[in-house]
Design a protein around this nucleic acid. Structure first.
Length: 515
RNA sequence: CGGGGUGUAGCUCAGCUUGGUUUAGAGCGCUUGGUUCGGGACCAAGAGGUCGAAGGUUCAAAUCCUUUCACCCCGACCA
């Protein structure tokens, strides 16, 4: 039992925070609601970036960067947009500080007040729309397919590490198209990219669907989402893709001369995922012993723990480990790794230089048990234990983080391909486990009472016939805390009865409490 | 913004009711040395605090009073 981590059963919220702390992914900062992403956590974000960026490029997108500050007036140009974000905007109103004339310290210099305040971007549709209006003149300029990796700020009342922080890191794609069809196609394409990424890389199964009017992005015509289920049965929106129609094009006057020789407004999309994905990954996979990392984003794939007492034993064990490393990463990388600087006695060797994934050998002067817990809590997919007994039989002990299983292996079988196969197995097993859990926790309700009972007694997602509408959703939320997570793409062929209003409807939705 | 609560070592907290044997403490963590080492060791020594801040009462304040700041929880609000 991990002694620094509360169990999920005892206190799920505390467990989540304990896992983050134990794995050193992030820390609270002096600024309320803003987190410090520590190296272990940032490495996961880099892995997410690397993988997603490749997928964006493969679908024709390119990166650019727009400023952090947005003129306040820009935000107001799209009515729904400003309404949606007004409550959570931080403003820059002055440009200078001065010494406090009444004593020590500093204060705002009143003479530096800005004519028009800047908003720290909560999202960048407005400033990007402004630029697009200048860049786009002709149908020949379309489509514009730009993504940016950035930080944004939304002044949240209830921050939680990774899941909802006042400042967070994300990517936002912003595209402009000649036709509605093309823009809608783009919206769906990126939703699919997100779904594939989350499933293939983070091993989290998702439900694809459309948001109801009440839940959609401020200023969007349609918002599409991938929804994931956490281990407490709550839903987490893992990514969104918005079809913005001509709303922003009209607000920012993004026009082009069309093939029809007429001025037309473009059709735009935007789509984003954030560091929240790291929160999703933690909540979907980790256990009471700590973090469990999906192999594809694990910065360290194997931690080798040597066991020895005497100097002679140390020499034989490290010699054996060197041979093993050579088989895994090649002699050149072993030599390079031996020379590489490290702050402690943890040696590090690249297993895959493209993904920066490493194998480490833990030579610190601590007890083997400490090392086991150390790497286990950090979610490293595999640990390899090598002691004198193993060396004598040309063997090692392979410990798998996912199920904490223990198997004896033989040195002769070790190779890069062998390890890749092991990692792929873990990925599959993680995905299957998460999917089985999710599927077990999606229940169908035939009546509102039944839904209430399910939500209260079991949690999870509830699938039901329901015609989304602002009023009724509000009522359901007040009464059950559950919201319409999405209108899934796979809809039944037959109509049914709306569980709340009793009206006939063809629409089924997923209800759940959400983060 | 309403209701409640908390500020004492890096972390978790005791001490406050009833001011003075507390020279401000404990556990964890950290440093050093030794014994250990196949799932969180043990022994010894040590570093670390203007008790959130300011003011007041008193011979004497972590403790009582006033003011103030910060944070947390519940509501409201919200990707």
């Amino acid at each position: 039992m991990a002694k620094n981590i509360k169990t999920r059963k005892d206190d799920y919220a505390q467990w989540y925070l304990d896992v983050i702390k134990a794995a050193q992914l992030a820390d609270n900062s002096p600024v309320r609601g803003c987190m410090v992403v520590r190296p272990e956590g940032y490495a996961i974000w880099e892995a997410i970036q690397r993988d997603l960026d490749r997928r964006f490029k493969e679908t024709g997108h390119i990166n650019a960067y727009f400023p952090l500050l947005i003129p306040q007036s820009f935000l107001a140009k799209e009515a729904q947009h400003v309404e949606g974000f007004a409550m959570e905007c931080a403003l820059v109103t002055h440009t200078r500080l001065q010494k406090n004339p009444n004593g020590s310290g500093i204060q705002v210099d009143p003479s530096s007040k800005l004519e028009e305040p800047y908003v720290i971007r909560p999202t960048s549709e407005t400033i990007i729309g402004h630029m697009y209006s200048q860049w786009i003149q002709s149908y020949r300029d379309l489509p514009v397919l730009i993504n940016q990796w950035a930080n944004v700020m939304r002044w949240e009342m209830r921050p939680r590490l990774f899941l909802r922080t006042s400042e967070f890191l994300w990517q936002e794609g912003h595209t402009a198209h000649e036709t509605a069809d093309e823009a809608q196609e783009e919206t769906m394409r990126m939703l699919d990219v997100y779904a594939s990424f989350v499933q293939e890389t983070l091993a989290i199964p998702v439900v694809k669907g459309k948001k109801s009017e009440a839940e959609k992005f401020p200023g969007a015509v349609d918002t599409y989402t991938i929804e994931a289920m956490m281990q407490d049965g709550k839903a987490l929106q893992a990514g969104t893709s918005h079809y913005l129609g001509q709303n922003f094009a009209k607000a920012f006057d993004i026009k082009f001369l069309g093939r029809d020789q007429k001025q037309n407004h473009v059709y735009t999309t935007s789509w984003g995922v954030s560091t929240r994905l790291i929160g999703a990954m933690i909540m979907a996979h980790s256990d009471d012993e700590g973090l469990v990392l999906p192999p594809n984003v694990a910065p360290i794939v194997v931690a080798i723990v040597p066991i020895f007492k005497s100097d002679e034993e140390r020499a034989t064990v490290t010699g054996f480990i060197n041979q093993m490393l050579t088989q895994l990463v090649g002699a050149d990388e072993v030599a390079a790794g031996d020379k590489r600087k490290s702050g402690d006695d943890i040696k590090s060797y690249f297993f895959d230089k493209q993904t920066n994934q490493r194998i480490v050998v833990d030579l610190r002067d601590t007890r083997p048990g400490d090392k086991q817990y150390h790497w286990e809590q950090r979610g490293v997919p595999f640990r390899i234990e090598v002691g004198p007994r193993d060396v004598a039989s040309n063997a090692f002990v392979l410990k798998r983080r996912l199920d904490r299983s223990k198997n004896v292996g033989n040195l002769s079988q070790v190779s890069a391909d062998w390890l890749r196969a092991q990692l792929a197995d873990v990925h599959r097993a993680m995905f299957d486990k998460a999917r089985a859990f999710r599927d077990d926790n999606i229940r169908t309700a035939k009546s509102y009472d039944e839904m209430k009972q399910i939500l209260q007694e079991k949690g999870g997602f509830v699938r039901a016939y329901f015609e989304p509408s602002m009023d009724v959703e509000k009522r359901v939320k007040d009464e059950t805390k559950a919201t319409v997570r999405c209108i899934p793409f796979d809809q039944p062929s037959q109509a049914g009865t709306d569980i709340v209003t009793g009206q006939a409807t063809k629409t089924q939705v997923l209800f759940a409490q959400a983060y």
